[in-house]
Nucleic acid binder design. Structure first.
Lengths: 404, 404
DNA sequence: GCATATAGTTCGCTACTCGAACTTAACCGT
DNA sequence: ACGGTTAAGTTCGAGTAGCGAACTATATGC
């Protein structure tokens, strides 16, 4: 039960009922397609007449198409409905320090076009390049209803201004991406933190049972990020800063973090931590700064993953240590938030066979709660960040209507 | 934007619009009373005719009464509407190990009757006694529409079965309170964990600005409990176990907790911890179990609070240490969840002048986020747990309708 | 070819909101 | 005292939506 927000509510009009039932229909078609009108009526509890009216509307707006006739043992054969894959185009943009990916996706988050571009250090320059690529993408793919643009960012977005507040890995501060992109394309733009995008992707496209409404995505890369879905909706906190699990402190007097705190989770379980563990294992004497060594000799996290995959003892040790602390942090999340699912996102999940059992064991020994949280790795080939950007736009049509 | 739950949704009927607008009206009247129909129309954006229809309905159902005429500089004078204080009776029950309190409250959570009873060790016996007291309460207060019964419990309630899963301080396990109480009174019964009840009380009756939709209540007594409101609604997690912040681990290899984990927050910041700190300060040699001393010599937490209030150095030291760890835990909550407000509930808030600054300082040094979380003590005279039980029932009529 | 079963449509009824027109009730200046 | 002005509240016809019964369309099987 939600409290009505008197600073921001919407009254019901005569069209509200249709809006609600329309969204329910869209969702039922999405998850049961192909499906007949009669089955929709049975699943929803609405009258067949009402379902027919709504279906007609959805077909007119080409959200839905009427497909082949179905087979029935007796009686008139149903006419199946399904979502119109061709109609909807959603543009997803994933901005990362190394590169920015742009995709064109359909309603099922299948990518029909993909391209990559460098992420410029200068935001103005980057935006200019991005806008021209977007115009070009739209021009070369005509005949599509573009529903909007979703953007995933390595930083937090301010709720009120919709500006990127701070992205340490990009070196950007207070950048307004929304306005120029909307101007250049004429499409609505939704911005979201990368971890939040991953959480959305899992809820909307992940292979979780219906009824999973509390889910946490943990992104492990240079740092650790988090995205939370509680009661079926994204939790952003008062300013959009909720989910910064990378900076919860695991160790009271632990290592100093650039955030000002000590013992932050990401100092012990991120890819950077993995690199540090490996460096210490290789040369225990020179514990500490990896920067003290010459650049060539510093292995990347990818190197360590590869070595670990090949059975290198020291790489495995580093990975195991990371896994241990991943488990320790995840145990905290389970204790405090008791979600149905925690999804891990990041390169390290490639060694899930190795780290999965370690994580599960640590969690088991440290979280007493009766919550039966499943801990699973995200499929990296599914590109969770990009799929999240699609979910961001899809939500507007498939999400519960904002009412009261 | 919420995802529609296809396992549990409600379609809209022709009455849905009325239901939505009715709830909005009730909330507007609640927060602006006394208010005229015309002002309601202005605040809601509904037509005056629609407002009049709804108002008529609410008056007929005696949720609302028409009060005095207002004054206007020009034109017809408005007829003010306000909530009908007399009509609604909500019964609140707060079960604690020491005693159980029963209250009868009106719409504004003002208590019109209060009584206390011992909390029996045997749940069956307790329920029997409670039922007879409730029947008696209802009999002696006729002419009231009883809307329901809210119960606050020192333990977690299973979401599906609505049974009390486990209440360590009561020594109860798997107790079904709902069914017998509903049978005895004929009223709907809502159960909730005490910390969740406190969070609800703050959101519905607390003096926070409208628009506070993310709030955490932290209850400090023998242990530490937590209740979370995110996006304006209670977060219970997959099984109802969300909010067990007392068992997030602050210190990796800290003290062993009965939960099986180590370094749990409540071992360092609960009243029990305060008692331990004091014992250690008084006789540093015999660190550890307070049980080794004779019962008379063991000061209760209340004693320590009193001593600290009188300026006793060792009591103050114990309280300060508690405050330090309260701050450390709260910093974690702010980092991870970035709520608008954190409300502290418990006897220790009586020394807010002492502990407030310590908590704020620790939080400031440990949570880097840009979240501007306010940390405030709950007013103990307001009886947050009991008011929460009222909110629990009030929600049903004043909360957003469950739609889609 | 007729009984039966199921899918989908049509149509009158009811509930609801909108918005314009109308009624009611106050104040004010002459 | 009286009409002008203003705002509150009511009435009523139009539009939108869901319900449910009756109806049409189309399949199977004996």
């Amino acid at each position: 039960m939600r409290k009505i927000d008197l600073t921001n509510f919407r009254v019901a009009t005569s069209e509200t009922a249709r809006d609600i039932n329309r969204r329910i229909m869209l969702n039922l078609i999405r998850s049961h397609q192909p499906i007949s009108r009669a089955d929709l009526a049975r699943h929803s509890g609405l009258q067949r007449s009402t379902v027919s009216m709504i279906a007609e509307q959805l077909i007119r707006e080409s959200w839905v198409t009427e497909g082949a006739r179905g087979h029935a043992p007796r009686g008139r054969r149903p006419r199946f409905l399904h979502l119109n894959q061709e109609r909807v185009g959603i543009i997803g943009i994933n901005i990362r320090p190394a590169a920015t990916k742009i995709v064109l996706a359909d309603v099922d988050a299948h990518f029909t076009a993909q391209e990559s571009m460098p992420t410029a250090h200068n935001p103005e320059q980057f935006i200019e390049e991005l806008c021209s690529r977007l115009s070009n993408l739209i021009k070369t793919h005509p005949g599509i209803y573009y529903e909007g643009i979703g953007v995933s960012l390595p930083g937090r977005v301010d709720l009120a201004s919709q500006k990127l507040v701070f992205a340490p890995n990009l070196g950007w501060k207070n950048v307004d991406l929304k306005t120029p992109l909307e101007k250049a394309t004429g499409l609505p733009v939704e911005l979201e933190n990368a971890a939040n995008a991953c959480a959305l992707a899992e809820v909307w496209f992940g292979r979780h049972p219906e009824g999973v409404r509390d889910l946490i995505a943990v992104t492990v890369s240079e740092g650790i990020g988090g995205g939370m879905i509680m009661n079926g909706q994204l939790v952003r906190g008062s300013t959009g800063a909720a989910g910064e699990f990378g900076h919860i402190s695991l160790i009271e007097d632990g290592l100093e973090c650039r955030c000002g705190n000590r013992g932050c989770w990401e100092l012990y379980a991120s890819n950077s931590a993995g690199v540090r563990y490996y460096a210490q294992a290789v040369s225990p004497g020179r514990a500490g700064r990896a920067g003290a060594r010459s650049p060539e000799s510093i292995p990347t996290f990818d190197d360590i993953l590869r070595l670990a995959g090949q059975g290198d003892a020291k790489a495995l040790e580093a990975i195991d240590q990371m896994a241990h602390y991943l488990g320790a942090g995840i145990a905290q999340l389970i204790t405090g938030l008791a979600p149905d699912v925690i999804v891990l996102v990041g390169e390290v999940t490639r060694l899930w066979n190795r780290i999965g059992p370690i994580i599960h064991e640590v969690v088991k020994s440290r979280s007493f709660t009766h919550a039966k949280t499943r801990i699973v790795p995200a499929d990296p080939s599914a590109q969770p960040r990009l799929r999240g950007t699609i979910a961001l736009v899809l939500q507007k049509h498939f999400g519960a209507p904002s009412v009261a």
